[in-house]
Design a protein around this nucleic acid. Structure first.
Length: 134
DNA sequence: GCCAACGTTGGC
DNA sequence: GCCAACGTTGGC
């Protein structure tokens, strides 16, 4: 799952762009999760702050490579991945709904709200997709 | 290498 | 707009 403020880069914009480079991640843990992404992996797209809901699905089209927006003197080897927008959910899955699901109690989104890139188990992803596409 | 101070993020 | 949580920075 990746997280983004809709004011900064909304899923609607992402759909229009079709693909995007997921750059600008400057957190070590988030970076490690970026590096772990495999081509074809599904990515849930969460709108933070003003909307607080999972709004759609994307997919990894290119695995981690050096982030072109990172300055050479910035410490850490920052990476980005390329994502493609797959589809918007017919119905956004709100943070409240996620909190209400016992099966989603342990997702990093709830446990560590500031992490911008995080892994989900297959089961967790399935529950959220089930809600969003029902 | 520890820890206080500060900045940022994100939920409320 | 506030504040808690977290990460980062800098003094010691």
């Amino acid at each position: 799952m990746v997280k983004q403020e809709p004011e900064a880069y909304s899923f609607a914009q992402f759909i229009r762009d079709k693909t995007t480079a997921w750059t600008g991640v400057r957190n070590f843990r988030a970076r490690n999760f970026l590096k772990a992404m495999q081509k074809g992996d599904e990515v849930l797209y969460y709108h933070s702050v003003s909307e607080k809901a999972v709004v759609g699905i994307a997919a990894v089209v290119k695995t981690a490579y050096p982030d072109p927006t990172a300055k050479p003197d910035e410490k850490g080897d920052w990476v980005c991945v390329n994502l493609k927008a797959v589809r918007a959910f017919p119905r956004a899955v709100s943070l409240d709904e996620i909190k209400a699901r016992p099966g989603l109690k342990n997702i990093p989104l709830l446990r560590q709200s500031r992490l911008s890139v995080m892994p989900l188990t297959a089961t967790e992803a399935k529950i959220i997709k089930g809600l969003g596409e029902s």
